[in-house]
Computed example of a mutant assay.
Amino acid sequence: MGILSRAVTGLALLLAAAFASPALAQSNEPGCRPEMASSRLPIQRANLGKDEVRLTFVGHATFLIETAGGVKVATDYNDYVRPPVTPDIATMNKAHSTHYSRAPDPAIKQVLPGWDPSGRGAARHDVTMGDLRVRNVPTNIRTYGGDTDYDGNSMFVFEIGELCIAHLGHLHHPLESGHLRALGRVDIVLFPVDGSYTLDQEGMLEVLKAVQARVMIPMHFFGGGTLNRFLTRSQDLWPVERRERPEIVLSKASLPAKPTIIVLPGH
Rank of each mutant, 00 (worst) to 15 (best):
G152L: 02
E66C: 02
H167D: 15
N28C: 12
P174V: 10
E202Y: 13
A25G: 12
T62H: 04
D51Y: 02
G114V: 01
V249S: 02
R124N: 12
M129F: 11
N136H: 06
V189K: 00
Q26K: 15
E176P: 03
P138A: 03
V211Q: 00
R124M: 13
Q44E: 13
H60C: 09
V53E: 02
G146M: 08
G223D: 14
L15E: 14
A16M: 09
M204Q: 09
A16C: 09
L13V: 09
T98W: 14
A25K: 12
L41T: 10
V73R: 01
S38Q: 13
D149L: 12
Q110P: 08
L255E: 07
D79L: 08
K94S: 11
D79T: 12
K50M: 05
S38R: 11
Y77Q: 05
G146P: 07
V207S: 05
G223M: 07
N78M: 04
G70I: 06
A12K: 11
K252P: 09
M1L: 10
G10D: 10
P239D: 06
L14E: 12
A16D: 11
R54D: 06
A257H: 08
V249Q: 01
A257Y: 04
P117T: 04
V134G: 02
R142N: 15
G203V: 07
T198Y: 10
I141D: 06
M204A: 04
E66R: 01
N47F: 06
I160E: 11
Q26L: 15
P265V: 07
Q212I: 07
F221Q: 01
F230Q: 00
S254I: 08
R102N: 13
H170E: 15
F57I: 04
F63L: 02
V81M: 09
F191H: 05
L132M: 08
H172C: 15
A61M: 14
A17G: 15
P83Y: 03
T67G: 05
V207M: 07
L48K: 02
L41V: 11
F63K: 00
V127S: 04
L64Q: 09
G31S: 05
I248C: 03
